[in-house]
């Protein structure tokens, strides 16, 4: 481990430690915003783990997230909560593996379309199952888990995701993914099983999103398909990650923090103009800051980044 890496690790640890005190200092609105920030930090970082190096734009986040949430909501009376978290993760992993087997050998556009419709399809199926089974359209989730506990769970998950991403970035698997992103033909002829490498990371990314959904289920006492499988979630994750910059481990976080506040402001003051704002952010990413805020900052300081992922 080099000196800069040690510093990076220390800074990261300090940030997490400081973040752990948020629920003690702030309740209500502040805490709720903090939960949202950490949730998106987890989702964007795990999204980037797969989509960053491969350039496959996945819009399946909402499908994983929603299934995780539904796993908890549907079975909360049957199994203890920690078991459900494990189950949700497994459901996410299995779904990701299936999608991966079906689509990852295809080109980018197919993958985007496939993932885009996936959440919608799962939502329609869940709604249909619920109505034909005669229950109401939603599920009641009653647990003793309050907002600070959700926050701490998410924070622990975030720490795990950052650590895992950092390890993977330095591993053969991480290198393989970067090569695949560069030129898949070269990757194959260098001995990389491209399908396996992609599926492995997609599974990690998908199971983290499912676990995040599971952890957040108790936040809403009533879970409906429209909430759990909101396609907006997938788009927000993509935007925040790209806005921050996907070529660095800490990049997505730079997108999450300002965007969450801005989004909160816009939904509160101009609820009809959220789509417009999303659209403008997409164009901003494509035409003005293709490497995100992280790229901007690096251009400004023009020296070796402290936390090189």
């Amino acid at each position: 481990m080099t000196g800069t890496e040690k510093t990076g690790l220390a800074v990261g640890a300090a940030i997490f430690l400081a973040a752990a005190f948020v629920p003690l200092l702030s309740g209500g609105y502040g805490l709720s915003l903090a939960v949202t920030v950490v949730m998106y930090a987890v989702l964007t970082t795990s999204w980037t783990l797969f989509s960053g190096p491969t350039h496959y734009i996945s819009l399946a986040t909402a499908a994983f997230f929603g299934l995780g949430m539904y796993t908890v909501a549907a079975l909360i009376d049957v199994f203890p909560y920690p078991v459900l978290l494990v189950m949700a993760t497994a459901v996410g992993a299995v779904l990701a593996a299936l999608i991966g087997l079906a689509t990852l050998r295809l080109s980018g556009v197919y993958f985007v379309i496939f993932t885009l419709g996936l959440a919608e399809m799962v939502r329609q199926l869940v709604t249909w199952v619920q109505t034909t089974m005669g229950t109401s359209s939603g599920l009641v989730v009653l647990t003793g888990i309050d907002e600070p506990m959700i926050y701490w769970q998410l924070l622990a998950l975030a720490a795990a995701v950052y650590l895992a991403s950092w390890r993977i970035g330095r591993s053969r698997l991480g290198f393989a993914l970067r090569i695949i992103g560069g030129d898949e033909v070269v990757a194959r002829h260098s001995g990389i099983n491209t399908a396996h490498a992609k599926i492995a990371l997609f599974v990690i990314s998908g199971s983290v999103a499912a676990l995040t959904g599971a952890i957040l289920a108790p936040r809403w006492t009533y879970v409906e398909p429209v909430i759990a499988f909101s396609p907006m979630l997938s788009f927000l994750v993509v935007i925040m990650a790209l806005l921050g910059g996907v070529h660095r481990l800490w990049g997505p976080l730079l997108g999450v923090i300002p965007f969450t506040f801005l989004w909160d402001l816009v939904t509160a003051t101009f609820p009809n103009q959220t789509a417009l704002m999303l659209g403008l952010c997409f164009l901003l990413i494509v035409y003005i800051i293709p490497n995100g805020f992280a790229g901007l900052i690096e251009n400004l300081i023009r020296r070796r980044p402290l936390l090189a992922g």
Binding site: R172, F175, A176, I179, V186, A187, S190, G191, I192
Partner: peptide, 9 residues
């Protein structure tokens, strides 16, 4: 160049 050396035999 490293690309060649990691994943082959």
């Amino acid at each position: 160049v490293e690309t060649g050396g990691v994943f082959g035999h």
